[in-house]
Design a protein around this nucleic acid. Structure first.
Lengths: 341, 341
DNA sequence: ACGCAATTTGCAAACGATTGCAAGATTCTT
DNA sequence: AAGAATCTTGCAATCGTTTGCAAATTGCGT
């Protein structure tokens, strides 16, 4: 009979539960928070009641009072190429690992995609919302300056992207320039002498990859690397690649694609043009996504360690939340030789 | 001189701003919320001050008071196959579209991955946190019953997955069984008579795809379809597929893969075994991910309209938030014939 | 000028959990 | 058994915004 009554009661807040337990709200709060100040028997009673009624303290109220939310914001600026990018495997995989790491540290993840062109205020707005304790920015896109501005006044921010000499925001990323060198070295070692870079060099990461490749080309006394700009979305990119190939294929014998995704598309177009890989054309990608193993022939590429990147991002962010002043983290890329070079 | 003073003041809450504007906090709140009750000149003054100081109302406090947060939870239960799944292109693409749709509707997205085995309480915990206005569950995994339980007491929930006769939770998904029929029909039309299904049939969606294929096999008087269970993570799956092929390849002439990802891996293994596709073996996938166009030969598959799915999920969720009682939405799959059948 | 209606504002009580402080209850000393 | 020391608890303010209600201001017609 008593059971009927208790289960009928709805308990929506800590006060209701306190009434049931015959104690004050403060005690319930302390008990549920696992503080040591509360008597073991009282705690057990409260915990039992909480379990029985499926009670969970309201995170909003808690967040408001404690001035921390337990939520980390993850924002993806869609800068130069609004449409695609998010379904870019690389970012998505990174996001997955981030979710894992943050969960493991007891944080929730609030995801936001923004189009900086439409909303100049995107970063401040997110930070100022009071909803998040810190923010991870995935990709600098073309927003380097804005991120720099914010970094001066706001500590708990870490950015995935390219490290530039003297920058003020804390960044985690692969050494893209080195990666570019590795790719170019391999292409050249495989016999290529007239190289092209496939991808949009206005994106910082890509620019660095290009620059690395150019370093090597210059050092070896080869002609400057041609750039073949493309968008990232597969449908547009395919067309653009086809056009590039039609116009330039005869002038080059090696392609360094900014991304495995682009490399895979390029491979398809090359096949359509009847250009043999690696016979007539060497090809290298970047990222080492799963697809790199499945193209025909399998793709030579530069691997980024995504899991390590995610771990780095979260680790640095937590340190910054604790007040520490952290340096950027630059991860080494690794050449993976398969069959396109 | 006045400017110096005003810019020096930090304004962290609505009360500070009210002081500056010489009005009461209530008025500021109304002005910023765009309510009609406030005088135009006062409003403009307040808006100007807010802009000048970069003030943004605290979402936590607002959420607490209004009892709504403007955040939708998106949860991915990692049931039968913890590791991979999230980097599964399909889910990630869906997530991307969800982010777009929710943003467009003015909602934020809180992402959570859970391992139901470790945390039986995953769904209630999320819902009860007070942080989200509603929840979208991506994939039923093996948690059908738990979702059903919750659905009775909690309205604003929509699930991506398979629709089962008489279920109580609102679901959006492709007609997997029909999709399975389409795939099997095509395989058979291409000349296959002894079919196998590649994938783990304990996942509901996959089970339905298998059942659809079996429908057709039975109707045509063909032998029962063999199941070749695999995990979803590429590394494990590759091995498992190789083993399956070694053991069974001679007994079958058509494979229906639960997923394009699996189909692509399978294609690689088939090539390694020297089995010609579609000559010796027909192959069909499911999803129509970008990779389906890039395999060699390009993959015949069953397309799911991911964007429409995301739109459906968000649309139904919003309707439910408005109190409406909505039916499930079953989307038609579409056969895409390429070169593996 | 005056009264009445229509606009604008301010007041103060919510929303639900946390926490410093002090009071009350136990236990321990001597 | 009294007093000190230690545990437990309750009280009430606080986090920052919203909103019902009432007060104050304005506008309007006569």
């Amino acid at each position: 009979m008593d059971e009927d009554k208790t289960t009928r009661v709805t308990v929506r807040n800590i006060t209701d539960l306190a009434r049931l337990a015959g104690v004050s709200p403060g005690t319930v709060s302390r008990a549920l928070a696992g503080k040591s100040l509360v008597n073991t028997k009282t705690r057990e009673k409260i915990e039992a009641l909480a379990r029985e009624h499926g009670f969970r303290p309201n995170q909003m109220a808690s967040g408001l009072r404690r001035q921390k939310t337990g939520v980390i914001g993850v924002v993806i600026p869609l800068g130069h190429d609004s449409r695609q990018q998010i379904s870019d495997s690389f970012f998505m995989t990174l996001l997955g690992h981030l979710a894992d790491e943050l969960t493991r540290e007891g944080y929730d993840l609030m995801l936001r995609r923004v189009v900086p062109e439409d909303d100049a205020d995107w970063l401040d707005r997110f930070i100022g919302s009071g909803m998040i304790d810190g923010v991870i920015v995935i990709g600098q896109s073309d927003q380097f300056d804005r991120i720099e501005d914010v970094a001066d006044g706001y500590g708990p921010m870490v950015v995935w992207g390219n490290h530039t000499e003297g920058q003020r925001h804390c960044v985690v990323g692969t050494d893209n320039r080195l990666g570019g060198r590795l790719a170019a070295e391999r292409l050249i070692a495989a016999g290529a002498t007239r190289l092209a870079f496939l991808g949009d060099t206005t994106a910082m990461e890509f620019a660095a990859r290009f620059a690395g490749a150019q370093d090597i080309a210059s050092r070896m006394g080869l002609p400057p690397i041609i750039t073949l700009p493309t968008h990232l979305s597969p449908d547009r990119a395919s067309e653009e690649i086809a056009q590039h190939l039609a116009a330039r294929a005869s002038q080059i014998d090696g392609i360094f694609a900014a991304t495995d995704t682009l490399a895979a598309l390029c491979l398809t177009e090359l096949r359509a043009c009847g250009i043999a890989v690696p016979g007539d054309m060497k090809l290298a990608g970047f990222d080492d996504l799963p697809i790199a193993r499945q193209t025909v022939p399998p793709l030579t590429t530069v691997r980024q360690d995504i899991a390590a990147g995610a771990r780095g991002l979260v680790d640095l962010l937590l340190r910054r939340l604790a007040g520490e002043k952290t340096e950027s983290l630059v991860l080494p890329p690794q050449l993976v030789v398969r069959a396109t070079t």
